Amino acid sequence: MFPNPTDTRTLIPFVDSLTILPKTIVADAGYGSEGNLDYLDQIDVEHLIKYNAFDKEQKRSYKSSDKNRKNWEYVAEENYFVHPDGTKYYFSHISRKKNTSGFVQIIHVYKPTNPEEAPQKSFNYNWHYEELKEQETSKLLSPEGSRIFAQRKIDVEPVFGQIKANLGFTRFHLRGKEKVKVDIELALMANNLRKYNLRKAS
């Protein structure tokens, strides 16, 4: 149990608390930050985790959009991008952004020579995160990756629905980490007993 306000900041503390590392971690888009994917790579734990824009990027409209950087030409020798309309965006500088978990993102900023006429005055590109997302996309769209990720919806998601809909457990009744832990354990126990009784009756 973690008091962090977003899923993103719970993955690393959770993994650090494990005495035995899992072979593979499967999680939804709330956990697909650059820091989390980078951390799992560093400790050699395989992962299937959607990043925030994953579903949007699979849509046909996005794949053909000029917002998709894959539709831009990149000239490595001179380090500039070419917008589909022909506008060139040259590398300007690097910006470092430290998030609340302490992870530092290295952002490359690109700007056009004619900002007043350009479709956008500048854009940021995170080369490391883009590489991580490319690797994650390849795994998620593979037959085996798709099968494993789909199984997560069967194994994990129904439990939350059962607790909320069948037991009416939509919020914690106690305060404090230890008491909240007891609270959710009682709810999970009640859900297991309910399923056991239903199976026994059938």
Results as ranks from 00 to 15, higher is better:
residue 87 T to S: 10
residue 4 N to V: 00
residue 87 T to K: 07
residue 67 K to L: 07
residue 181 K to P: 00
residue 120 Q to T: 10
residue 199 R to N: 09
residue 89 Y to V: 06
residue 43 I to E: 06
residue 52 N to M: 03
residue 162 Q to S: 14
residue 90 Y to N: 13
residue 124 N to D: 04
residue 154 I to C: 03
residue 111 K to T: 15
residue 49 I to G: 00
residue 117 E to A: 13
residue 177 K to T: 13
residue 164 K to A: 15
residue 187 A to I: 08
residue 4 N to K: 12
residue 25 I to Q: 02
residue 123 F to V: 08
residue 62 Y to E: 00
residue 93 H to P: 04
residue 27 A to S: 05
residue 190 A to V: 10
residue 168 G to C: 05
residue 25 I to F: 07
residue 185 E to T: 13
residue 74 Y to P: 01
residue 135 Q to K: 14
residue 145 G to P: 01
residue 21 L to C: 08
residue 16 D to A: 10
residue 158 P to K: 04
residue 69 R to N: 05
residue 80 Y to N: 00
residue 126 N to E: 13
residue 37 L to K: 04
residue 125 Y to M: 03
residue 170 T to P: 01
residue 86 G to M: 04
residue 54 F to Q: 01
residue 155 D to Q: 12
residue 133 K to Y: 07
residue 196 Y to R: 14
residue 81 F to P: 10
residue 97 K to Y: 08
residue 121 K to A: 10
residue 10 T to H: 05
residue 102 G to L: 04
residue 83 H to G: 06
residue 191 N to I: 00
residue 31 Y to L: 04
residue 175 R to E: 11
residue 62 Y to D: 03
residue 111 K to N: 08
residue 47 H to A: 11
residue 18 L to P: 12
residue 28 D to F: 03
residue 18 L to V: 05
residue 120 Q to R: 15
residue 92 S to G: 01
residue 197 N to P: 01
residue 105 Q to G: 02
residue 202 S to T: 14
residue 200 K to L: 12
residue 21 L to W: 14
residue 21 L to I: 09
residue 162 Q to T: 04
residue 99 N to A: 06
residue 145 G to H: 07
residue 160 F to I: 10
residue 34 E to D: 01
residue 88 K to Q: 11
residue 40 L to A: 06
residue 182 V to M: 12
residue 78 E to A: 13
residue 18 L to W: 03
residue 94 I to D: 11
residue 82 V to F: 06
residue 94 I to P: 01
residue 167 L to R: 03
residue 105 Q to E: 12
residue 153 K to Q: 13
residue 57 E to G: 05
residue 12 I to D: 11
residue 197 N to V: 05
residue 144 E to R: 15
residue 86 G to T: 06
residue 195 K to M: 15
residue 46 E to H: 09
residue 72 W to P: 08
residue 179 K to M: 08
residue 63 K to P: 10
residue 195 K to V: 06
residue 186 L to A: 11
residue 64 S to K: 15
residue 102 G to S: 06
residue 112 P to S: 09
residue 47 H to I: 04
residue 4 N to Y: 07
residue 61 S to F: 02
residue 172 F to V: 14
residue 37 L to G: 03
residue 151 Q to T: 13
residue 157 E to Y: 00
residue 43 I to V: 12
